[in-house]
Structure formats: C-alpha cells, structure tokens
Amino acid sequence: MEPEAKSRTWLAPAKINLALHVTGRRADGYHLLDSLAVFTRFGDRLQIEPAERDAFSVSGPFAAGVPLDDSNLVVKARDALRREAGAARTPPVAIRLEKNLPIASGVGGGSSDAAAALNGLSHLWNLDIDEAGLARIGLSLGADLPMCLKARPLIARGIGDDLSPLAGFPALALVLVNPGVAVSTPDVFKALARRDSEPLPPLPGRLDFHTIWNWLETTRNDLEPAARSIQPAIGETLKALKKAGAAFARMSGSGATCFGLFETGNVAKRAAIDIRGRHPGWFVAATRSMEAD
C-alpha cells in the first residue's frame, strides 16, 4: 500500500433490473436469467481508510439489521481479497458503510456494497488484480457481484455472470420506491410459476427515452407476479408510481423496490415529492442511472 494512501469514499449504487426474464434452471439450483440492468447515482457509500486494526461499522437510515460480523458481504469481500493477495500486501483497514438503500429490497444493495469494497480495497492496497480477477473473487461471494463491479448499463445472462455492456445506453430519470417491506429472494424463486421464459428481445438500434420505454413494454420482470403474491404492497407501490406520472413502472429484481421511469429529472423529482407526501413511511428516491462509458 502506498504510504500516502488516504481515506476515500466509494459509491455502492442501486442495481435496477429494468427487465428480467427467467430462462432456465441449472442442476445445482441456480436460475438462469436474461436481464437488462442499470445502476443509479443514489446508493450506499463506503468510506475506506488505513487503520491500526480492521474495523467495520454501519450508519445511515437502514443501518438497523445490517450484520457487523463476518456474515456481512463487505467483510467477506475484504477477507476474500486479502486471501487472494496475501496478508503482507493487505494491512488493516477501517470500513464505514453508510446504508441508504433498504435491505432485502431487490436493488442489489449487499452485492453492490461488496463490489465497492473490492474496488476500493484493490485501489487502497495498490493491488495488481485486473477486472477479471476481481470478478472471479466477486462471483465466489454472489452471482450478481460481477455486474455490480461494472456498475454500468449491461445485459446479464446465465446466473448473472455473463455480461454484455451496452454502449450508448443513456442515463434515465428514475424514482425508486419501497413500501417498507422486505421480500425473501429464495421465497420469490420458489413461488415462480415457470422457469423457461424466452430471452429478452433485441434492443432497438437507437437508444433514447422513448425507444427504451417502448422496448420495456415488450418485456417483463418474471419475478414480479410471484413477489406480489407474497407481498401485496408491491402492487400499491406500482399504483403510486403510475399515479405520480411515471411513464413506466415495474418491480426491480425480487422486490419489493419498484422503479418509475420519467422523461426528465425534474419530473422525477416532483413525482418523488408527491409520493413522499402521500406515503410518508415509504422509501422514495429520485435519481438518475449512470450512462454507458
């Protein structure tokens, strides 16, 4: 590690599945997916700095319930990277997680936190592990870690590790809403009616708000009906987004967070204020997705 290394804060963005088709299931139980995912400018934050001894702490509106022991994916990521690089090159660090995203909410919060830890620690420790190496370590922690490491618009296939970045994909104005409920991902997959959907249709040649909206209308989130049967509040969340003027609304991942697509950032901000006023106990955030590099 470079002697001048200092504290730095890393964004752990929300992962939003704009579309998600379940196309099969492997013999080991992993489901095969075809999903268009984007990552938002709003998310959790990790502050990482050199320390006398390892430390991990959590603050923020959703800190309650976040484990502080080695069951936390951030701690697992730190330890996995240390095993890979060796203790001599990976001195103690203090990691502070600011938890701004709801837990178990379908936006990849834990995986994104771990991805930010891998990226941040690799930089702080000045390791010569390339993107493929980090993705391999990430995949050992969770199927969606590799896509969270990229954190740019992409199509994810297989178990989530076959990634195709989407050049030219624009930033989108979004409102994220969670009605204050957690949904178990394994329970959602168990409740699936079918696991053999067709892949996503080809994306349009020209990518803008209108063409993406029209394309989304031809796709689904195959997990949404199952999640709604477990947690009916998801349906109320989608209704609230549509009432606030969303051009398109859908559940992300396995829920219960839903997103609304808006034509401009200002319209999204006004919609977020409206929903917050009607549902003061809900998580509501207006944000933008990150565009392709």
Rank of each mutant, 00 (worst) to 15 (best):
S59I: 04
S59G: 04
G60D: 04
F62T: 03
F62N: 06
A63Y: 15
A64S: 15
G65W: 10
V66L: 01
V66T: 07
P67Y: 04
P67C: 05
L68I: 07
D69C: 02
D70N: 13
D70L: 12
S71C: 07
S71Q: 06
S71W: 00
N72I: 02
N72G: 05
N72K: 02
L73E: 02
L73R: 00
V74F: 06
V75H: 11
V75Q: 14
K76S: 00
K76N: 07
K76V: 05
K76R: 11
A77R: 10
R78E: 15
D79Q: 15
A80F: 09
A80M: 11
A80K: 12
L81D: 10
R82P: 04
R82W: 12
R82A: 10
R83A: 14
R83W: 14
E84Y: 11
A85M: 09
A85I: 10
A85D: 05
G86T: 03
A87P: 02
A87M: 04
A88W: 12
A88K: 15
R89P: 00
R89Q: 04
T90Q: 07
P91C: 12
P92Y: 09
V93H: 00
A94V: 03
R96M: 01
R96Y: 00
K99L: 04
N100Q: 09
L101E: 10
L101M: 10
L101K: 11
P102K: 07
I103E: 00
I103P: 00
I103N: 00
I103R: 03
A104S: 12
A104E: 14
G108K: 11
G108I: 09
G109K: 02
G110D: 05
S111K: 11
S112P: 01
S112F: 08
A114E: 06
A114V: 09
A115Q: 00
A116E: 05
A116N: 02
A117M: 09
G120W: 07
G120F: 04
G120E: 12
G120I: 08
L121G: 14
L121E: 14
L121W: 09
S122M: 08
H123W: 15
H123R: 15
L124I: 06
L124S: 00
W125L: 15
N126Q: 12
L127R: 14
L127Y: 12
L127E: 14
D128T: 14
I129G: 08
D130S: 15
D130K: 13
